[in-house]
């Protein structure tokens, strides 16, 4: 069902954990639907210097979180903002159609953490103006 890459990230997820005094924290998903992703960012000079996650969810939710953290670590905010759910799914060598919402959740988790950072630090991030946290990833 899953690609080897998904299974590899599920077995050995990267960047699991929390960051104390994180600059941005995002939590998306809903326990009713069976998946919640929480992402912690450490940001210095517009660069994501560290990222950690915690996820309640299925194998692809955990793998998508892990992959998303790898994709944004060391990247600028602008670069992180350009990461789409499709890019996360592609990096995992694809997800089954019923699991695509997991990659949507990963994209939302990044954006939600960046939104938290922008609010706390009163900085503007291009592309977050119309970010809707309440959007249901399952509809994708």
């Amino acid at each position: 069902m899953y690609s080897e890459k998904v299974m590899e990230h599920f077995k050995n997820p990267r960047n699991v954990g929390e960051i104390e005094n994180a600059d941005g924290i995002g939590e998306v998903g809903n326990p009713r639907c069976g998946d919640i992703m929480k992402m912690y960012l450490k940001i210095e000079d517009e660069v994501i210097v560290d990222v950690k996650f915690k996820t309640f969810g299925c194998g692809s939710a955990i793998a998508s979180s892990s992959m998303a953290t790898e994709m944004i670590k060391g990247k600028t905010i602008e670069e992180a903002m350009s990461i789409t759910n499709k890019a996360v799914a592609k990096a995992l060598d694809g997800l089954p159609p019923v699991k695509m919402h997991c990659s949507v959740l990963a994209e939302q988790a990044i954006k939600s953490a960046l939104l938290d950072y922008s609010k706390k630090n009163n900085v503007h991030i291009d592309g977050l103006e119309d970010f809707d946290l309440t959007e249901d990833p399952h509809e994708h």
Binding site: V16, M37, K54, T55, F56, I62
Partner: peptide, 8 residues
């Protein structure tokens, strides 16, 4: 559970 935000 160590990975779960709900357990935390």
């Amino acid at each position: 559970r160590s990975m779960s935000p709900l357990y935390e």
